[in-house]
Computed example of a mutant assay.
Amino acid sequence: MNLELYKRIENSSAHTQNRIDNGNFIVQNNHLLDDLVPFCFEISNKLHLRACCILEKVFEIELNLSINHLDFICENLNKLKNDSAIRSISRFIMLMVQDNSKKYYLSKNQLEKITEVCFDWLISDYRVAVKHHVILTLFEIGKTQDWIYPELRLILEKDSIGSSPGFKSIAKKIMKKIN
């Protein structure tokens, strides 16, 4: 791994300005994505959480930089187990799927992998931020795949009982749209 990139990851924080600075640095030096993307999925290294936060910001700034890394990302999504890492990556996935509805660059296989992991994350015990991103992702994919809305509806109805106000809010909003 590039030493400067490793130092940036090591010294990064969750502060907004720090994430923006690191994201802009990677956008300007986008060859570093070849090191950053795989590092995000090295779950044995605790720094992968910080790398995921940086990657989220990079793709928020310049989403088209993700194109060359989509196969690897989609193949490795199911490796992520940490709530913070999944929150960052689920947000990027949401942005990518929403963008894909206009540009159509995700393959059928990539969409299947994303759909599978999103349902897994939705029924698992993750925070509301992850579930929010996942619900919006599945809603977007469901526009072109009939079977998703009935499955999503069942989960949202079941999980809304006794859930947090944040989950209930996004569930209600999406239920209105799919009914």
Rank of each mutant, 00 (worst) to 15 (best):
L156Q: 06
D83L: 08
R153T: 05
K57I: 00
I86G: 03
K46R: 11
G142Y: 00
N82M: 12
D21V: 12
V37H: 15
T16L: 09
E10N: 11
V117A: 00
S84D: 15
D35L: 06
L152P: 13
D120L: 12
P38W: 14
I86E: 04
L156H: 03
S66Y: 10
I114G: 06
Q98S: 03
L156W: 10
L55P: 05
L32T: 08
C52N: 12
R153I: 01
S169Q: 08
N68R: 09
S163A: 11
F119M: 07
R8W: 08
H15S: 09
L36D: 11
I155R: 01
P165K: 03
I54P: 05
E75Q: 06
L49T: 06
N45D: 15
N109C: 04
E151P: 00
E42Q: 13
K168Y: 02
E10D: 10
Y149V: 02
K143A: 09
S101G: 00
E116A: 07
I61P: 09
K108D: 15
A85W: 12
M94L: 11
C40R: 03
K173T: 10
Q28W: 06
L95C: 02
D35R: 15
V97T: 09
I123S: 04
T144Q: 11
I161D: 02
F72H: 05
P150V: 07
I61V: 10
L138Y: 04
D21Q: 13
L80G: 14
S90F: 02
L70A: 10
V128C: 01
F167Q: 01
C52Y: 10
Y105M: 02
I89V: 13
L32Y: 14
F41W: 11
V97I: 08
S107Y: 00
N82L: 12
C53S: 13
T137D: 02
K79R: 15
L106C: 10
S90E: 07
S84N: 06
I141F: 01
L95F: 12
I155S: 01
S66G: 08
I86C: 03
N68Q: 14
L3E: 08
N2P: 10
L122F: 09
K103Q: 14
V128M: 07
P165M: 09
W121T: 02
A171K: 00
F25M: 09
K57W: 11
K158A: 00
L106M: 05
Y6Q: 02
I73M: 11
R153Q: 04
L152I: 07
H48D: 10
T16P: 00
A14Q: 13
H48L: 08
D146C: 01
N22M: 03
T137V: 05
D120F: 05
L47P: 06
T115I: 06
R87T: 15
